[in-house]
């Protein structure tokens, strides 16, 4: 087990290293305007001095080395245009909590609704609940999210008699954005669980379980659901990490001060250091998510063996 974890960890670190290095090198090709608040008014001497101070005049390998040193110290640099002079870590720390809270709640809601829906659909294949669920999934996938988000916002707000904009201190104000954020994942979980369960239901071991006298209730829960859930577990950490990294559209719609809109903002503002920091954070989140998924999967699926190969007999 430890060896397996070590191996996966190492692979993840190598991937992360390659991605970070690539992003860093690419970012160096961006126009230098991205490091200045107001380059038009600065003269050449000031510009050169600042570039020197930022280390941008150094040879690439020195820059890289410094960059990794800083990362290990937990220093992501400072913002130059978005909020001049503010450490990037602080900016993110101010925005992350609300996104994380919303993401976690939305995740819980998605699992709580999506999983039973998928299971119900698989059990009543081609019957009433399956048709309702399929209609829902098709709707969510076919209609652009922007459309139903806006409907939810305008109708929902007037129904709940609340303002359209977000106020973190009021419980009711959480309902609509969280619900909007969850719809996609509810459909996603339901769709995959149904598919995996229908696959499992057609397998021979279900026949055998039936033949030995297990009730169809127990077959669905103890055999089929459990087995169908295992392949889904792999994706849950990624999906969790991505929901907590914020939903761009929902956050801007409700003016929620979260992480979601940040990347768009800093790109339009051409804040090089912040773009770099955020891209790196998202890349790391992706890699960590996959790593956790694999480890979780290995923990749960006995067919993935950690130990040395033991021959079948």
């Amino acid at each position: 087990m430890l060896k397996y974890v070590g191996k996966r960890l190492l692979a993840a670190l190598v991937t992360l290293f390659i991605i970070l290095t690539t992003v860093f090198v690419l970012m160096r090709q961006m126009p230098i305007e991205g490091y200045f608040d107001n380059i038009d008014k600065a003269d050449q001497g000031v510009i050169d001095a600042k570039l020197h101070q930022l280390g941008l005049k150094d040879p690439m390998h020195i820059q890289l080395l410094n960059f990794y040193k800083n990362i290990l110290k937990g220093d992501l640099g400072v913002s130059n245009r978005y909020r001049t002079g503010a450490p990037i870590i602080d900016i993110i720390a101010g925005k992350a909590p609300i996104s994380i809270q919303m993401g976690l709640i939305s995740m819980a809601l998605s699992l709580l609704l999506g999983i039973p829906l998928g299971a119900k659909m698989a059990r009543s294949k081609y019957k009433f609940w399956d048709k309702i669920g399929t209609g829902f999934i098709v709707f969510i996938n076919a209609v652009p999210a922007a459309v139903y988000y806006i409907y939810i916002q305008s109708y929902g707000s007037s129904m709940l008699k609340i303002s359209m904009l977000f106020d973190p201190s009021k419980f009711l104000n959480w309902v609509l954005p969280v619900f909007s954020m969850s719809l996609g994942s509810i459909a996603y979980y339901a769709m995959w669980l149904r598919r995996y369960m229908v696959d499992e239901l057609n397998k021979d071991y279900v026949q055998l379980a039936k033949a030995k006298g297990v009730t169809s209730q127990d077959i669905t829960m103890a055999h089929v659901f459990r087995n169908a859930f295992v392949p889904m577990i792999q994706y849950i950490p990624s999906s969790l990490l991505f929901t907590i990294s914020g939903s761009i559209y929902v956050e801007s719609l409700y003016s929620i001060p979260g992480m979601g809109g940040l990347l768009v903002d800093v790109i339009t503002r051409q804040d090089n250091t912040m773009v770099q920091a955020l891209v790196m954070i998202y890349a790391s989140i992706g890699i960590i998510g996959m790593l956790l998924g694999d480890l979780l999967m290995a923990l749960i699926d006995p067919r993935i063996s950690f130990a040395k190969k033991e021959g079948v007999r």
């Binding site: 071991y205 087995n227 006995p302």
Partner: peptide
Amino acid sequence: DPMTSLNPLK
């Protein structure tokens, strides 16, 4: 088919 008639996860 004995390869498929047992639940692989139990």
